[in-house]
Each structure stands twice: as structure tokens, then as C-alpha cells.
Amino acid sequence: MTATLEPEASIDADVATPEFEAAREQQKRRQGLFMALPAYLYLFVFFVIPLVIVIVYSFATRTRFGTELSGWNIDSYRRLGDPLVRDILLRSTTLAVITTLICLLLAYPFAYYMSTRSEKTRNLMLVFVMIPFWTNFLVRNYAWRVILGSDGPYSRLSEAIGFGEGRLLFTNVAVILGLVYGFLPFMILPLYAAIERIDGRLLEASRDLYASGFQSFRHVLLPLSMPGVVAGSILVFVPSLGAYVTPAILGGAKTTLLGSYIVTQFLSARDWPFGAALSFVLMAVMLTSTIVYFRKGGRTL
């Protein structure tokens, strides 16, 4: 029994019968479907169909004039084994893994400490995590460009300390820095949600049973907060793997990553089938990791 946007269809009957009940049930189901339909259709047209098109394109042939939707082949997928492509895939994966690990290392103690605080402090701390989460991603990456720039604060500082003109901009380190900066909130939030839900008495009990704090972390806190660890890792790893803006702003010519490589296929190389195949790989990684996550009993991302 709830509000609905569909006018009530009348089912004529005086005395209740199983048919009447079934008809009402049916009517309610139809109302639900009817209400879901606009968004459903929208996503079907602007998400599912595009998805199918990407898959279709990845099997198409590239010609001099563009893409020919015939002569189906798996050349684009074969090219994933090319040394150049393999390098890019490897480098992207490595960078994404490092980014994820750094985020975990920073976020776990952060989220843990946050959940030991009073309600008021917790909420305040949360607000100050949410602000960067909401702040324009491009601008936040750009800020690092300014800091790491040729005579920005970073080089001045390193010169002052006597490290010489250490140059970070346009290196992998700068890209990792930008990615961590960009995605750290995505790690903190699910971790905090998972840790906060744990009953503190379990930890106390484990402190009674185990000698050290580390063991209680290892055997109680960590397993119980695992859903948060996995959710946060997916939320950091997947977009890092597909990052495009960050390497474009902070990375150099020699640090092409998967995301930028895909963009290149479309905006300059005009090799759409190959670009489609690369996108599909990225999507497959995402789908596999989320399916694994839900299989392992995770509920929300």
C-alpha cells in the first residue's frame, strides 16, 4: 500500500475472492513496473545499447576512412598482446595497485581512529572528508600541477632543503600522487562505514583472549572490516586503472596509461575497434571485481 503515480484501476467485485486478490497483486506489480519504466528505458537506451555497440565495435575492422562494421574479427583483442600495449596495461595495473595500497594504508588507520571518536567529532571529521569528495576533480588535480610546477612551492622547498631541483611533475610518482589525492575519499568512506558498524565489544573480548593489539587487529578487526576494504579497493582501483584526467595533467609523454591510451584511440588515432576492445577490457575488470565482491557477501558499494 503506497503512493503511486498511476491512477487506480478499478477491479469490480464486492466480496473478496482469490481472483480479486490476485488482480490487486497484479495491479500493484504493474504499478511498480510502470514507475520503474522511464528510468529503465532511459538506461536501456543510453547505457545498455551503447554498451552493446562498444562490444560490437571491438570486433569490427578499421579502414582508412574509419570503421567498417563488417569483416568481423578478433584482431583488436589480439593486439592486447603487443609489447607496447602490454607495457601500458602492466604500467596501468601497477600504478593502480600502488595507488590502492597507498590509499588503504592512509585510510584504514584514519577510518579506525575516526570510529573511536565521539559522535560529534566523527561527524565533523566526516564532513572534512566529504568536502574534497565533492570538490571538482579536475581542479584538485590542477592544484598539484601548480604545486609541482617548475617554480612552484615544491621545487622551491626541495631547493631550499638542498635536494637540488628535484622534478616530480610528469613522472609516475606525480600521477600516483594525483590519483591518491583524487580517490582517497572513496577509500575512507566505505572503510569507515564498515568499521563503525563493528561491535566494539568484540574487540574488547579479543583483547582479553589475544595478547597483543596487533593480533586483535589481525584476527578480529580486519576480517570484520573486510567488506569495507574490498569495497574501497574496488572504488579506488577501477577508476585509477581508467584514469585519464590525472595522467593528462600530471603525467608525461612516457607515462601513457590505459585510460589515456583509450582516449587516444578515439580522439587522435581514430582506431575505434581497438579503443572499444580496450574499453571492454576495462569494463570486464570492473565487472569481475564487483561480482566477486557481491559474491563474497558485500552489500553496498
Binding site: I11, A13, D14, V15, A16, T17, P18, F20, E21
Partner: peptide
């Protein structure tokens, strides 16, 4: 699912 339900003599089940 079944049956008659009257309030002051008026059938209201549906």
C-alpha cells in the same frame, strides 16, 4: 483472499 467483510451491513471487503 476469501470471505465476506461487512461494516454496518455494507460489504467492504474490496
Amino acid at each position: 483472499t476469501m470471505g465476506s467483510l461487512k461494516i454496518f451491513g455494507e460489504e467492504v471487503g474490496t
